[in-house]
Design a protein around this nucleic acid. Sequence first.
DNA 1: CCGCATAAGTTAGAGCGTCTAACATATATA
DNA 2: TATATATGTTAGACGCTCTAACTTATGCGG
Lengths: 206, 206
Amino acid sequence: MNVREKKLAKDGYHHGDLRAGLIEATRRLVEEKGPEKFSVSEACRLAGVSTAAPYKHFKDKNDMLVAMVIDGMDRLRGNMIAACAPLPPGSPDRVSALGREYIDFAIREHGVFRLKFGGFTDELDDPRLEAAGDETFGVVLEEVAACLGVRDVTADVRRRGFILWSFVHGLSFLLADPKLSAMGGDVDLDALLAELAVRVLSDAPG
Amino acid sequence: MNVREKKLAKDGYHHGDLRAGLIEATRRLVEEKGPEKFSVSEACRLAGVSTAAPYKHFKDKNDMLVAMVIDGMDRLRGNMIAACAPLPPGSPDRVSALGREYIDFAIREHGVFRLKFGGFTDELDDPRLEAAGDETFGVVLEEVAACLGVRDVTADVRRRGFILWSFVHGLSFLLADPKLSAMGGDVDLDALLAELAVRVLSDAPG
DNA sequence: CCGCATAAGTTAGAGCGTCTAACATATATA
DNA sequence: TATATATGTTAGACGCTCTAACTTATGCGG
């Protein structure tokens, strides 16, 4: 059979890789209809299996969403690392590049972003997901430390990282929602991020 | 009958004010269990009516949530206006007070906040809700304009307001989630907001 | 290469939730 | 007082999640 194109539907009785197929179906549906409207049944239809099939691979609906979001977080972290790789180490440009990538992800994969950060934590509560988030924030903290010329993640590094994250996080939410982003008029995002990084990374430690 | 205490349950065949009772039940449940777990049935149980009763007052589940969130937005705007009323007009303190109130609301009424801003816009799409949001942002813009000594809401006012909002918005999300807020260590929120307001309102127009 | 344990599907159905239709009762007004 | 309307009720269709019991494919030891 043709392996070149990843398939969602199956050939015969067995699917091949239903777990991956369902994760992909979940991702598509979450992006198309939004996290709230996502249903396991629909993902099954997309994957071409019965509605009971997922439960051989996932504990429940939540577990399915968690698996998909973890995938997304890995993608986000990968993008972030790739984006600042070519830039000079220890420069604020690297930090703004991270922010830019974060915002782009929030816009491009809005459904995934909302699931991770929309305050669903109670629902989607899962140590694996939490770990994925910590790891991503760790990338930011490393860059912040480098900019400050510090070796380890001090309280000051953590504080500055958190402030940077807050701002970029808020921007992500507002920019990803057309109605809300319209309220700000035109914003030169790159300039804003550059200015932000320089300011937060050069001020006296608060 | 006793009118002093607003009731959720009814006395006889008719309820008295089921619409308000259901909105209150909705609010409680959304806060207790989270927006995702909210069900009309449970609100009915809380209000002591049959599961079909809400449909005499609301189009559907969404309409019920919208009504409840609009109530919340009115509360938020009221708090914001009240918080900056005693402060000297045109001072950045007024703007930080607005931000403080926004963050407090996000923490105190986290469920409502998530429904309005969690990116459910597609779902909860409703002109009344949008208007409530615009009106609240309008309060911010007025204060920003006053600080800048400008009469109307210019593009610069809008831009600065948007930046302030982004930051406070991001902080709200991170601080309202215990797991995420822990990542920032201890932050002196009031000092941060004060510094933010002064900076954004005194820099050269971008 | 066969037989069997197990992995990975299937169908059937319980149980809950949304929402509609048809009916019942209270309230308000002519 | 009669009646129209607003606001409740019950019954039930339909979709969703998830489990139980059954079926089919796969892979591995002899």
